[in-house]
Structure formats: structure tokens, C-alpha cells
Design a binder for these strands. Structure first.
Lengths: 109, 109
DNA sequence: TCATCATTTTCCATAGTTGGAAATCATCTC
DNA sequence: GAGATGATTTCCAACTATGGAAAATGATGA
């Protein structure tokens, strides 16, 4: 997947409170889709779709054990997100002086 | 704003390639809405709406100088995003220490 | 005041997201 | 194989996002 598309998918997946809740739950360990459905309070079908979105962003992956599908956090993708965040945090930090100068110059409010 | 809603807005704003492009451009310094419209290749009206979404996520703020509205990156919200990412990344290894060290080194906020 | 410039808002058409119900699929147990 | 269980897919209705055109707003300068 193109890097831009991957970031689109990652950030979109993160842009929903319930999907972040699912990730928080998975941080404690793998959970079946049914267990996750209990947590969100939604039907299995809806939960399955949220999980699919998280999977599309590579934020989790699935394994099957007997009849149950287990979701696991995918730690690798955090590296990528962290990279994006860190890169911008670094770049932005050097611009504060310019910003202040600009504000002073233009007399902007 | 509720913390959950803020994160919704931040991540949603980041989930579009062109909005990330706008942020990248702003990293080099403030830009007027018209200048940003040139960059996205979209009409002013559409650009203005993307900017509004970024503003809703507090990723930027505006100032006015004469007839032009200037967009500036908002550094403060980065702390919050970094926090969320770091909290989750923590589960995954000591690599978060690298991020924190990096952020500290560069003086990023 | 009036015209102009930069931006925002409104309106509309198109496309995508969401959740539940029901159908379907995959796997297990007997 | 039959039946049960867990998960996914399909279908539909409601809602939201998007982009452009045109109208409206706000600020400036003559």
C-alpha cells in the first residue's frame, strides 16, 4: 500500500472513539470478536466491521482458534505512526520563532 | 471539548492526504487560504472547508492581516496526540523510549 | 459610500460511513 | 451428515463528507 493511503487508513481508523476503545482493550491481550462486541455494546456484525477498519489500517491482525477469531494489536504500525508524529513534532518545534516574528510583523490578532 | 471528541477530530483531520499536505506546507510557515488553495489545486471554497476541519481538530489556528486570513500550525495539540500514541506504543517495547528521547532532544512540544 | 478583494457559507449532487437484520460462511461437536 | 456456534457479508435506511457554483460576508482602499 502507498504510504499516503496507509496513513489515511490508520488515522481514519483512529478517528472513532469506539475503535480506540477496541485498541485499548486489545492492549491487555488478544480478544475474540464476540468479546469485543460485548465491550462496544454493539451487534457482532457492526463490531466486525469496525474491526475490519482497524485491520485495514494494520492496527490489528487476526488469528483463528477453533471457531473464534482473535484480534491482536499490530505493534509494527505504531512505528510508522510514531514516525509521522515525531517528524512533525520535530519540524514544527523549530518554527515557533518564525511564527512569533510573523505575528509581530503583521500585527495580526 | 471532551477528550474523546478532540481525538476524534484530530485523527479525522489527519486522515486525509491533502489535509496532511496542508500541514506540511504550514510547517514552513504561515500561509493564507489562497496560497493553500493553490497548493491543493482545489477551489477556495473547498480548501476553506478542509482548513475548517483542521481547525476543528485544533491542528491550526487563524489570524487575519488586512484582507487575508493566515493559517498557523498549532503546536499545543501535538502534545495530546503524542500522548495518545506514546501510551499505546508503550505496550510494544522499549522503542517508545527512543521517541521520547527524540522529542526531548529536539525540544519538540 | 462604493467597489473590490479574500474568504466563508449555502445549496446541491454525488459518494462514503454506519448499524441492524437476515443470509451466508466456516468450523466444531456429536 | 446434522446441528450448533462464531464470524462475515449483503441489503437497506439514515446520516455524514465532499466539491463546485453562486450568494453572502467582512475588511480594505479609493
Amino acid at each position: 500500500m502507498e504510504n499516503d493511503e496507509r496513513l489515511d487508513a490508520v488515522f481514519f481508523a483512529l478517528s472513532d472513539k469506539r475503535r480506540r476503545l477496541l485498541l485499548a482493550e486489545l492492549a491487555a491481550g488478544p480478544r475474540s470478536v464476540s468479546e469485543l462486541a460485548t465491550i462496544t455494546g454493539m451487534k457482532l456484525s457492526a463490531t466486525s466491521k469496525h474491526i475490519a477498519l482497524l485491520e485495514a489500517g494494520s492496527l490489528l491482525f487476526k488469528t483463528r482458534h477453533k471457531r473464534e477469531v482473535y484480534c491482536h494489536l499490530n505493534f509494527d504500525v505504531w512505528q510508522e505512526v510514531t514516525s509521522y508524529i515525531a517528524m512533525h513534532a520535530k519540524f514544527w518545534s523549530g518554527r515557533i520563532d518564525e511564527l512569533e516574528a510573523h505575528l509581530k510583523d503583521t500585527g495580526a490578532r
